[in-house]
Design a protein around this nucleic acid. Sequence first.
DNA 1: CCGATATACTTAGTATCCTAAGTTCAAAGG
DNA 2: CCTTTGAACTTAGGATACTAAGTATATCGG
Lengths: 168, 168
Amino acid sequence: MAKTNPTLRYPAEYFTNPENSIGYLARITFRSFSRLLERGTLSHGVSSGQWRFLRQLWREDGITQRELSERVGMREPTTVVALKGLEKAGFITRRKTDADRRKTFIYLTPHAKKLEILLAPINAEVHQIATRGMSDEEVAQLQALMRRVIANLADETAKLTILSDASA
Amino acid sequence: MAKTNPTLRYPAEYFTNPENSIGYLARITFRSFSRLLERGTLSHGVSSGQWRFLRQLWREDGITQRELSERVGMREPTTVVALKGLEKAGFITRRKTDADRRKTFIYLTPHAKKLEILLAPINAEVHQIATRGMSDEEVAQLQALMRRVIANLADETAKLTILSDASA
DNA sequence: CCGATATACTTAGTATCCTAAGTTCAAAGG
DNA sequence: CCTTTGAACTTAGGATACTAAGTATATCGG
């Protein structure tokens, strides 16, 4: 994190305007999307946070908490709290095996499984609204560019983690 | 929010994979960016949440809380809590006027003003890392596309707000 | 087979961010 | 004036998400 860097794409002042910052734009995009989505899901008793876990479990349930955390893109303590809420709401059950008694497997209840038919279209509709006036190519481009940013940041974070682990 | 919609760009099943969802991608982008940024700012006693307010105040201070909320992209109650923290940390002061005693104006302390020289480059560097391997055109495209998504979602939210206000 | 290490999850504590419902003050219409 | 409406901020309460540090169980090297 040098003070001056001649190879910078943009000078530091460029980001005085948050509208230029990818971090800012991503935050506003996420919050706006999430708010609108919740307007639709809340009437089915599902918050936007719960939605994120349900979506993954619709793809595949019977996976461990750790696996679920990774797929949803959240840390394990966040998952613990979220799953408590989901269990209390009757959306999931947790099961242990004797094979490895550390692991907890997460299963959807029949009720939660049925919700996919109702909730998946709501998400698709929000996506539709979000990309209104954009061509298919532009949508694909946006997705691809965000994935590249995520990969770049993950690489860097991994690098830093290795460094701090080595010094420990 | 119809169950089936023949004009949908993608069928609902497409979003079973979160990697296709703009909401998911924006969330991961934001969190990754924020995490890396905080690694740099925390050593100066600034959290990523505080950073967001400071960046705006570096542009212009002496504005009201409401104005600041809008520019940062957060709701007012969030701003109240954030400003309490910033005041406690010695980054800002609040001042009232007799002209309109409802308004509170926010000013940076000299210390906080000085931090810009140290912190702005850190943000630029994170941005640099995030866009590694991307052309200037691609970066501009990503910014433009996210702005369009934000505008689309804001339009829709405004529409819904008017509707619910009318029925109230 | 047993101590060191790693894995899976939990707890504790905190920061961030929201909605809903206040309070206080200003402005506008009758 | 003085009531209504609106604007600016606050309070209350909860959801979301994190880091750091714990517990319990499994695995692996000697």
